[in-house]
Nucleic acid binder design. Structure first.
Length: 152
DNA sequence: GCCAACGTTGGC
DNA sequence: GCCAACGTTGGC
């Protein structure tokens, strides 16, 4: 089993939104970065655990835990010309973009903020805190996962 | 709102 | 294949 971190802007889709979805499951659409796509398509497995991260908001940070409930399948929002993630280069018979389903597990007792994650030398290797990183999906090692949870 | 960092596009 | 221009991300 692997661990991940996935970013979402809470104004678009927050941990509370996930908790309120039917069965507390939602598809993770809109990823349009090849590196992130490859991780979702090739490496994410049902049962993998995910830190749910709120980006582009007042207090960026990890707010909850989710799990992968369905492995990669074509991101149908890429086929919809009215969708803001539309990509005419992705065809139903030859999809370019993929998504997974994530299921709510729990919220953290508090937000573990980006600024405190940056302060921890134990997390120097975490892509999230590396300069200039923009990946919206990234791997987390088991050691990093355990350490971050110990901060809760 | 600003802007640094980075990915993508497309002319050559 | 190079690289300038452009668009996006996302912290601040």
């Amino acid at each position: 089993m692997r661990y991940w971190l996935m970013k979402s802007e809470p104004s678009e889709f927050s941990i509370d939104d996930l908790e309120k979805r039917p069965h507390q499951i939602e598809h993770w659409d809109g990823v349009r970065n090849y590196q992130a796509r490859n991780m979702m398509r090739d490496e994410m497995k049902v049962g993998d655990l995910v830190f749910f991260y709120h980006s582009n908001c007042d207090t960026p940070g990890i707010v909850g835990i989710a799990k992968i409930s369905r492995e990669a399948y074509p991101d149908f929002t890429a086929f919809d010309a009215d969708n803001k993630h539309y990509d005419p280069g992705s065809k139903p018979d030859d999809p370019r973009w993929f998504m997974v389903d994530v299921q709510f597990v729990r919220k953290l007792k508090r937000t573990i903020t980006l600024s405190e994650l940056k302060d921890r030398p134990e997390l120097d290797g975490l892509a999230l805190v590396r300069r200039g990183n923009r990946l919206s999906v990234m791997p987390v090692t088991e050691a990093q996962w355990t350490y971050i949870l110990s901060l809760e």
